[in-house]
Amino acid sequence: MALGSLDPVTTARVVLILALLAGALFFTFVSMVGVIRLPDVYARAHTASQADTLGAGFGLAAVALTLGWQGASVKTAILLFFIFVTNPTAAHAVARAAFEDGNVPWTEGDERR
């Protein structure tokens, strides 16, 4: 079915869903590039959490919008809430373990590791 044959509200919704999906893909992609390009565990932890916050965030928002007003969208919102609680905890756990291990953060001018 072509977009043009839908009523304006549905069209707007489809466009919004597509935009959210594009955002989700973009931030997940950025996160992946960051993990490869950044120099050390701390810097990578910054960007790895991007995939969770906005990547998963936009993705789940697109899911909720697709499902519309029903029970499952509420569960999507709850899912998002848990991601936002667990993501910083996990990032902190990784960084803290590295710090406790005496891992000195990379700074300007250091060799790439």
């Binding site: 701390y42 910054h46 960007t47 609680v85 910083p88 902190h92 710090f99």
Partner: peptide, 15 residues
């Protein structure tokens, strides 16, 4: 506060 700082990319609470 520590988790909000970590959630914001660019800042990461280590300890």
């Amino acid at each position: 506060l520590a988790n909000s700082i970590t959630l914001t990319p660019g800042t990461l609470t280590v300890r």
